[in-house]
Amino acid sequence: MNTFLFTLREGVLNLRRSPMLAVSSVAVMGLSLFVLGIFLLLTVNLRAAIVAVQSQVEVAVFVQDGLRDVELQSLDRFLREHPGVSSVSYLTRDDAMARFRSELSQKEYLLEALEANPLPDTFEVALFDDWKTTERIAEFATQIEGMAGVDEVKWGKDWVGRLNRVIVILVLVDLFLGIVVALSSMVVVANTVKLTLIARREMIELMKMVGATIGVIRRPFVIEGVLQGTVAACLATALLVTLTGFLQDRVPELIELSIPIFAIFVGFGAFLGGLGSVVSLQGFLRKW
């Protein structure tokens, strides 16, 4: 406790003593974090895009003609109670035709040749996300196809498989980039902190000589690093918000980073600053 105030004061003083060094450290850290933030922004939007595309995966269950109400109801109940199904809507052949017509709009004349409505009654089934893999949908479709009253089950077999492969690749690339960006910002921060330490080598030596414990020697630098990291992350946040606003004027669909993500982001900046100090100090204190 006696040393706590001392180390806190020294940490804050460190920043004031060499403002240029503090400013450049914050700038370098801020820019690294900004790059990390851009990556986060891309990731969030990539995920949203994947979810949006995946939500369009649907299974259409075509029902045989002239099915009795009882059979229809039991089919309906089965679908609704299935664990993989998130929602079911029933479309009569007339509804289906009406929708078809509206989708054709100007080209309704194409339907004039039809004598009767060729479309079947349909259950449109939406699945939960974890059921949207090729294997699980295929399994689901086979199960439904075997049921009484079902004429045919349709789903974008090739399309879903390809989509899932693309998603896997995108997520891996994203993860790889994330690791690279995070690591490089850590290296940059550690090097920046090392500059601060070199500037303060005399003080570290002196503290060592007068019998300060490693903890007491380290703490002002960790406090300094945490403060710098926090300020840097706040700066990076400001830049990111500005960038997002600018982009949203052009791409309105762009999703901005949420406040909890920013909170984690600022926390990460503080952690990075502190960690940078600890890692860089290790070299200094090894020869004890």
């Binding site: 006696n2 040393t3 002196l206 007068v210 300060a212 007491v216």
Partner: peptide
């Protein structure tokens, strides 16, 4: 005073 503060001597 630095010596005393850095070694946690009481205020």
């Amino acid at each position: 005073a630095f010596v005393l503060r850095a070694t946690g001597a009481g205020r």
